[in-house]
Design a protein around this nucleic acid. Sequence first.
DNA 1: TCTTGAACCTCTAGCCACTAGAGCAACTAG
DNA 2: CTAGTTGCTCTAGTGGCTAGAGGTTCAAGA
Lengths: 137, 137
Amino acid sequence: MHSIGDLSRRTGVKVPTIRYYEQMGLLEAPERSEGNQRRFGKPELERLAFIRHARDLGLTIDSIRQLIDLSGHPDRPCGDTDRIAKEQLGAVRERIVRLRRLEKELERIATCCTGETVGDCYVIRALSDHALCDGDH
Amino acid sequence: MHSIGDLSRRTGVKVPTIRYYEQMGLLEAPERSEGNQRRFGKPELERLAFIRHARDLGLTIDSIRQLIDLSGHPDRPCGDTDRIAKEQLGAVRERIVRLRRLEKELERIATCCTGETVGDCYVIRALSDHALCDGDH
DNA sequence: TCTTGAACCTCTAGCCACTAGAGCAACTAG
DNA sequence: CTAGTTGCTCTAGTGGCTAGAGGTTCAAGA
């Protein structure tokens, strides 16, 4: 049996965040000690690790809730889990594409500043005048 | 003189967002019509385009406020604007690196699912068991 | 000139995924 | 037994908007 702090240390999830996940229905309400403190077993530890991992991968609370629901029905076809993972992959790829465009833009802006004072600073000019941009964003 | 809706159409910034920027001090309180409606001139239009552009590049409201303050003092050295742009570039690059790791991870998870049912679904297993991951994240 | 409907106003509350803090109770090491 | 850490609940704040209520003003057509 782990206290909430123990669970926090083992999973790297902060204590208030664990309580938040419980509130959001990702973790079931755990047993309590006589003094009303949460006591977690191994299944809760594993589920929290699952949640942590999924959050690190960028899944929303809602997606995670869906996955948890699905994992409670091991006999169902797993097309839905696949779909959730693929959607997430698509979203991540799109974010990468957009960030790479930003990177190029910022590179140009940040390295081309040869002015001495704000008055002739390329950063300010580039931000003011979209026409100085290469790509579209 | 532009109405707020006009400004919105010209810059692609939504009407409530323009009011929000005013509230946040990025836009100065504009003139008003007799009936208390906002009336913007060309300088406001340009500043809003500046803000829009900077937001698109991922700068925070706070960074933008700093840049606006700086642009009001054209005689100062522009090291600060440079620093803000470079910091932003660094942040973007870091996000890209992290997202690429996620992409690889999700690729593996989403494409390796050969199971038929949730019970033997790789997605669920991979999320449960961090040890199945290649990299560290 | 009048009317109608779109656009505007302010104000408050909600979104996501936490995070911080107040004020109090329970546990644990010495 | 006591001191200090950890736990509890509850409320409110974060960033960058977005939505809605309830009311006012503007502009185009009749």
